[in-house]
Simulated assay, not measured.
Amino acid sequence: MKKYPLFLGILMLFFIFSCSTTRKTANTGKDFGQLKLIGQYNVPFNFPYKGTLTGGLSGIDYDAAAGQYYLICDDRSALNPARFYTAKLYFSDKSFDSVQFTAVTTLLQPNGNAYPNSKTNAALTPDPEALRYNAKKHCLVWSSEGERIVNEKDTIVTNPGVYEITTDGRYIDAFSLPAQFRMQATENGPRRNGVFEGLGFTPGYKYTYVSLEEPRYEDGPRADIRDTTAYTRIIKYNSATRQPVAQYAYKLEPVAFPATPPNAFKVNGISDIMVLSDKKMLTIERSFSTGVKDCTIKVFITDLTGATDISRVNSLQTDTHFKPATKSLLLDFSSLGKYIDNIEGVTFGPVLPNGHQSLVFVADNNFSPLEENQFFVFEIVP
């Protein structure tokens, strides 16, 4: 979603390193750890790279074999064709030195063409938000939020989607879209800019989880400054068949601050997930209120164990007999004492020279000079 106009945390992790897939993974366990901030790096505003403007970095994933990061850009082909970048991040257990872009790749439609911008064909314009690298299949999976514009001049309704592509951007296939997540001109289904913001694979890549940023219309109101019991959804897919196998309810925190003026835009939702095991994941909740410069970013350890499969539940307002996922706060970025922007991506990075795992976050600046393309690197201290 676009933003409109603990320095220490407890992390229950143990590390599993897979030689067969080269993916660095972690499961929650009984061992406690702490998050220690190594450093921060900001990419300059509108930094030019190979004929494109960098910015809008909305998802990040690490390819351990190549030692590189994939970064999806949420430019809706307005500045340059929809795309993703690869980059190198240079850091140790003591400092974070720089980010170097190494390639830019255009996302391609099934017909092999680049995606058009909204002026050319709004119905085909994507809204890229999340990206993950599947080291087992050597391919990428990315998500689009679609579009929903309903006013006196236009009605543009485009479904969100999750797509599997090659590492050079060519379309392979789409994940099946459950009927509950089809965009509609009426106030049904997903809200605009509140759809597929996060995704991740279970260890071994058997399942793919996809998170909805905000509640569907049928599932109740959006998060507000008071606890409004705002529930969004997490979808579980079979990665091989790309078919959904379950859905789970996730309760959002209230919006952190009132907006100024009071009726101005404010939001809280899931901006990304990082899957830890078959049942556990990190969830990032990003709260923003007009009139407040910072975003409020909270990271939770979320557990789906015992949560109800709500695939057949159309409305979480009318059918309240379900058990949502449980969650516990891992990190509140406000504890860092720094300006925190629109963090929308998280990934495990490499093992540090001291043997500890790294954790990397990226913020989307929405191509605004008032916002920042931030990278934060943490060390996970056992």
Rank of each mutant, 00 (worst) to 15 (best):
L177A: 09
P178H: 06
A179F: 07
A179G: 00
F181A: 09
M183E: 10
M183Q: 14
Q184N: 13
A185H: 13
E187G: 01
E187V: 03
N188M: 14
G189Y: 12
P190N: 01
R192A: 09
N193E: 07
N193M: 03
G194H: 00
G194Q: 01
G198H: 11
F201Y: 15
F201S: 06
P203V: 09
Y205W: 00
K206P: 01
K206M: 02
Y207W: 13
T208D: 02
T208H: 06
T208I: 15
Y209I: 02
Y209M: 02
Y209L: 10
Y209A: 02
V210W: 10
V210A: 10
S211Q: 06
L212C: 14
L212V: 15
L212E: 12
L212K: 07
L212N: 12
L212D: 04
E214R: 13
E214V: 04
P215K: 02
P215Q: 02
R216Q: 09
R216Y: 11
R216P: 06
R216V: 13
Y217N: 09
E218F: 07
E218A: 15
D219G: 09
P221D: 11
R222E: 15
R222Y: 12
R222P: 09
A223L: 04
A223F: 01
A223E: 01
I225C: 14
I225P: 07
I225L: 08
I225F: 03
R226G: 06
R226Q: 11
D227S: 12
D227Q: 13
D227N: 14
T228W: 00
T228D: 08
T229S: 14
T229W: 07
A230C: 12
A230F: 12
A230S: 15
Y231K: 06
Y231D: 05
T232N: 10
T232I: 01
I235C: 09
I235Y: 03
I235W: 03
K236Y: 02
Y237P: 04
Y237L: 03
N238S: 14
N238W: 09
S239A: 15
S239V: 06
A240G: 08
A240L: 15
A240V: 14
T241H: 11
R242F: 09
R242M: 15
Q243A: 05
P244V: 11
P244R: 03
P244L: 04
V245G: 00
V245Q: 08
A246P: 00
A246F: 02
Q247I: 04
Q247M: 15
Y248D: 09
Y248V: 10
A249L: 01
A249E: 01
A249Q: 00
Y250V: 10
Y250G: 01
Y250W: 02
K251D: 05
E253A: 08
E253R: 05
